[in-house]
Design a protein around this nucleic acid. Structure first.
Lengths: 184, 184
DNA sequence: AGTTTAGATGCAACAATTTGCATAAGTCAA
DNA sequence: TTGACTTATGCAAATTGTTGCATCTAAACT
């Protein structure tokens, strides 16, 4: 039920509609949580029923109406209580590493191609996080304390993507070295 | 449906029972996949129905009988085809980073305690992977080629855990520096 | 003699996630 | 003016993942 907490964590700062939350989860917050619009809308409905959030219908000109959700006192309390509980490492399920593990069933070229593709993906995400870092966290003392905490999460995202890029280079070099081919 | 592929990837090397597979997923293979015994038994039954694996009942003395599963030709083909498809990064859902993101809702001490706990967990796992590295991959040229590929996956696990430890130290230092407290 | 630990498998219920479909208004370019 | 894209929300079904329980054998501990 931790998606609920991720949503409440965003709503602690300001109000969001489901659509806006979806965008957030696809972007910067994506460094620590992934969720589709379906999950978010369903979870918001559940949170509203539990009175942890409250919704305001906002009529808009030129576009569909939206439901703006805000955190209630009960929601804030529930979130704070959860913060004190120990956190477990998230489950890893990496297709890529299943492939390297059984790499002898295909040709090194197939693996290398996929690794290069992944390297590009992670490098792109890394650049995106670096841009956020430059634009929002270049001077921590200049931003309100509540916003500074996001930097800790972003730092993890920066590390994670940089680390993937480094592994891709590492693994690519090993595969090209010929250690994994009978002839080499 | 990628758990299926992870199971087949293990069975490509040798036959396993469900119980043995569970142990594998808890240990070394845990660096790229997490699965409970329930998931594994269910998936094995489904794979058997699709004829990607075949089961042999093995009577054992002194302990319950077991079902030894082996990969079929069809299963091997299906796995090889899957290997050529591009792999997507796995979904990240990190409770810890939700907490750092909304860290202003609790005290730095609460965050620091959890970060220290996580650091110990990741350091332990890192040591475990290092032990596997020493015991199984200290000389790549001395082991059969099929087994060498596992080192690529292990290397990712080593990096991942080391990177977490480094982040924990980083985040801990920042939290202790007082940047995140109004008085500091 | 009784409890715990390890090996071995499985059902049932529940929770979470993904995927496909559906709607509806407005913008913007070919 | 047709087609693609963005904003905005949602249902239904299928797939995956988790949790609690249940069974059986045998060794090892207390």
């Amino acid at each position: 039920m931790a998606l609920a907490h991720a949503i409440l964590a965003l709503l602690a700062d300001r109000s969001f509609s489901g659509y806006e939350l979806t965008k957030e989860f696809e972007g910067s917050v994506g460094c620590f949580w992934k969720a589709t619009h379906q999950q978010i809308y369903r979870e918001l409905a559940a949170l509203e029923e539990r009175r942890f959030v409250r919704a305001d219908l906002v009529a808009q000109e030129g576009r569909p109406n939206k439901k703006l959700y805000e955190l209630t006192e009960a929601g804030k309390r529930w979130l704070s209580e959860w913060m004190a509980e120990p956190s477990e490492p998230c489950a890893v399920r990496e297709d890529m590493l299943v492939k390297t593990f059984a790499g002898y069933l295909t040709s090194p070229e197939v693996l290398i191609a996929d690794i290069e593709r992944r390297k590009a993906l992670h490098a792109e995400k890394l650049e995106y996080y670096r841009q956020i870092e430059r634009e929002h966290f270049s001077d921590l003392s200049a931003i309100p304390i509540e916003k500074r905490f996001g930097y800790l999460s972003l730092k993890r995202g920066l590390r994670y993507e940089a680390d993937w890029v480094a592994w891709c280079e590492d693994a690519g070099a090993l595969l090209r070295s010929g250690i994994f081919t009978p002839s080499g």
